[in-house]
Amino acid sequence: MLIKIPRPPKSAHDPTRPATSLLKAQVDHMHEAERQLPLKYRTDIYVKALRTEADAAEYIREVTEAVHKAHENAERMRRVRERKLEIVAAAERPRRKSAAKTKGKGKGNAKLKRK
């Protein structure tokens, strides 16, 4: 059974329609989210001036993309930090080994000297 669905007319699309209370609430939520982002990710859009659906949509897009970017950068930084820790850990291991060898040879070892 194939059911045909009528498409909405082209005139149904109206981005100049005043933003609904829901869209305004979403803008408020996004504004709250934007305020929690580091300064470099924030938009310079004045939310109280947003009137139409297109205005609201544009702001919502900018903040959503900023949140994405902030998360991506934070993730990248986390990976860099983890990599650095791995390198440091790897570098420290042989150093300890050679220190032990030095201890074994009795050069400059305080404990051995005290003995």
Binding site: Q26, M30, E32, A57, I60, V67, H68
Partner: peptide, 17 residues
Amino acid sequence: DTTSSTMEVANLLQNQP
């Protein structure tokens, strides 16, 4: 899409992506 985005903003902030 990113222009419509979500109504679940708290999770967007905490658990994106």
